[in-house]
């Protein structure tokens, strides 16, 4: 049985761990609130953009010189994956889940004989994929140290992807990120950026009629040329802020668990400590009494 001193030291160390985890939980909770507000504030723009894009896509998709960003290159040989994770750990399985989803996707695509390229956003995803797939990673971004994700940060990544598409360096682009479902649930999700998935879902709502008759100024192509890169940036931005909110949620519940576990452990150790102390007292008493009897 451990000595009393060792037990006391152990209890103190678990107590300070509990203080840290509960503080981290509080911090995550307040950051979560902020991230959630940001995610909600960004929603109107994305929704309206989607609506506009649907109207435009319907009238432009048929034309033979529709932009590449809308219909893709017509092939699916080179696949670009954008993997969005957090920069910090201690958030439960948050980063690992995305990492695993990315790994599965890479294995699946390579199994089909496709070429895979990866851009990572966030340090943890890079660290995870670097071990096995270092040579597929062509770019890495990290916004560590930033209080919140700004739209201008995302622009940089989106500009890179746009340039790559223009140069024909990939055919299909997919983002893998943690979708924020609720504070305790984040689902790793794959979302396609290029070609736009809405085209395939289109036909059923086509006969809606009157709302399709937009006029365009200057013309459809000029608007699409400006709108599509914008849409790409918005989709990425959305993935990033959802992931940021998810990270805080995941950290909050991970730290909540850790705090609870630390509490349980303290209770167990305290019980153990008291028993040991009692045992020591009893033993000493027995020694004294039997010593006295021997006289």
């Amino acid at each position: 049985m451990a000595s009393l001193k060792a037990l006391r030291a152990r209890i103190n160390s678990v107590k300070s761990t509990r203080k840290i985890t509960s503080a981290m939980k509080m911090v995550a909770a307040s950051k979560l609130k902020r991230a959630q507000t940001q995610a909600e504030a960004a929603r109107p723009y994305a929704e309206r953009m989607q609506r506009m894009l649907a109207a435009l896509a319907a009238s432009a998709a048929g034309s033979p010189n529709a932009p590449r960003m809308l219909i893709g290159t017509g092939r699916d040989q080179v696949q670009l994956l954008v993997v969005v994770t957090a920069d910090r750990g201690l958030a439960g399985a948050f980063n690992t889940n995305v990492g695993r989803a990315a790994r599965n996707a890479i294995q699946r695509l390579e199994g089909e004989g496709k070429t895979v390229r990866v851009i990572t956003v966030g340090r943890k995803g890079r660290d995870y994929l670097r071990r096995e797939y270092a040579n597929r990673i062509i770019g890495e971004y990290s916004f560590a140290g930033k209080k919140r994700v700004e739209f201008s940060d995302v622009d940089e990544v989106a500009a890179r992807i746009t340039a790559m598409l223009a140069a024909g360096e990939f055919d299909v682009c997919t983002v893998i990120y943690n979708r924020f479902v609720s504070v305790i649930s984040q689902v790793p999700t794959e979302a396609r950026l290029v070609p736009l998935p809405m085209l395939e879902a289109e036909p059923e709502e086509k006969p809606a009629g009157p709302q399709a008759q937009y006029e365009f100024e200057p013309d459809e192509e000029a608007i699409l040329a400006a709108l599509l890169p914008r849409n790409m940036a918005i989709q990425l931005f959305r993935a990033l802020i959802e992931s940021a909110a998810g990270e805080q949620g995941a950290r909050m519940s991970a730290m909540d668990n850790a705090t609870r576990n630390a509490g349980d452990m303290i209770n167990r150790l305290t019980l153990n400590y008291n028993r040991t102390r009692q045992a020591n007292i009893t033993r000493e008493l027995i020694e004294i009494i039997s010593g006295a009897e021997a006289l």
Partner: peptide, 24 residues
């Protein structure tokens, strides 16, 4: 009239007329 920027909804109010700076 609704004005939205990527990070928030700036304005949403009924107006009699809005003059917007179109490209042309």
């Amino acid at each position: 009239l609704e004005i939205v920027s990527p990070d928030r909804l700036l304005l949403s109010q009924p107006v009699d007329m809005a003059v917007i700076p179109a490209a042309e």
